[in-house]
Amino acid sequence: MPSQPSRRTFLRSIGAMGLAAYALPSGSAAASPLPPGNPWARAEYISGKVRSPHLLDRSYDIRQLAPSATASPTALKRSSGPSRPATPQAAATWSCQPVGG
């Protein structure tokens, strides 16, 4: 049998939407900073919460990945699975020199 909320549950949730659902800042039962009855308050909440990640103020030129200043090849070691994402390494797979065109 399909394991979904029943239509009764769904309609009840819609009916309650204007009163309560927007009161939750997330799917959790956390306390609400949002006023009830104004769904767009939730949009403002999302806009305020989703920000650029904090990234360190350091930069590396991709050419620094090359094993030496004169060596052209560098590599992105490819992962063997999702738990081992790729890491830059000095091995010859991908050119770090500009390509033509």
Binding site: Y60, P85, A86, W94, P98
Partner: peptide
């Protein structure tokens, strides 16, 4: 990680 001006060929890039 900065990619400077130019055309650069690569395989898949996995971000950490």
């Amino acid at each position: 990680m900065v990619v400077p001006a130019g055309r650069w060929l690569t395989g898949p890039i996995h971000l950490l």
